[in-house]
């Protein structure tokens, strides 16, 4: 006998449930969580390190560091004495809310104000997977080419901030940072944009101020 059975479930529902649970857990401890996304080598780890250096005295920071294998990034954060949990995704190209859910209990949330979740280097797959963050920042570097934003529109559509990083080398790699900013604004007119260089320090204060504003704005849900 043939029988058609309706299911109607969204594959992303389970992830969304975990993400909501994570967000509530962060909020119950007064913690702001920021999902840091971007391609391999865009500067995610360095910009988080700079945030720790600038904000470490003013607030208590923790990091969940996602990588396919190894804990190289996590080791970089641990040097600053901040609680850091490395999450290896194995074959996966993105963090998901379930992996973050497993990392959260290992963080001393009661002693934290801010958690950075560094996603796996990828401009595609992290887009569809909420982690329980309050804000999403996506980092692109000029060395990826100034058409990188227009080639990956969805991640910008779902982000609150785009950082165009390594602007000090833009003329050497023939990339126009203004084009990258304009492309992001075309995709999402109300996205915040920053140009930064970890080398020269350009834009780093603005990056720090954006993080501070996120923390003040923590009641605003994504």
């Amino acid at each position: 006998m043939h029988l058609t059975i309706p299911i109607g479930s969204d594959i992303f529902d389970a992830n969304r449930r975990h993400a909501n649970k994570n967000r509530k857990l962060f909020e119950s401890h007064g913690v702001t969580a920021i999902n840091i996304m971007g391609a391999i080598g865009s500067g995610k780890t360095t910009l988080i390190e700079l945030a720790i250096k600038h904000l470490g005295e003013q607030c208590r920071i923790g990091v969940i560091a996602g990588d396919v294998v190894a804990d190289i990034d996590a080791s970089r954060f641990k040097k600053y004495g901040v609680p850091t949990i490395a999450r290896n995704t194995g074959k996966e190209c993105h963090l998901d809310a379930h992996l973050v859910d497993h990392a959260i209990p290992k963080l001393p949330l009661t002693n934290l104000d801010l958690v950075f979740i560094e996603n796996v280097g990828n401009l595609i797959c992290p887009t569809d997977f909420e982690l329980g963050e309050h804000k999403r920042a996506v980092i692109v570097s000029v060395s990826e080419g100034d058409d990188i934003v227009s080639k990956h529109p969805m991640i910008f559509l779902s982000s609150d901030l785009v950082i165009v990083n390594k602007v000090d080398i833009s003329e050497f790699v023939g990339a126009d940072p203004d084009k990258m900013v304009n492309d992001a604004k075309t995709i999402k007119p109300n996205i915040t944009t920053l140009n930064t260089s970890a080398k020269t320090g350009d834009g780093i204060n603005a990056w720090i101020n954006w993080i501070k504003a996120c923390m003040q704005d923590n009641t605003v849900k994504p």
Partner: peptide
């Protein structure tokens, strides 16, 4: 992200799902 009617910011409510609608089985 923009309402075609009034140009105000709009919310994307459908188009990012992956849904298992139904299966047909033999018993």
């Amino acid at each position: 992200l923009i309402c075609p009617q009034c140009n105000a910011p709009a919310e994307l409510i459908r188009g990012r799902e992956i849904i298992i609608r139904e299966i047909t089985i033999c018993t």
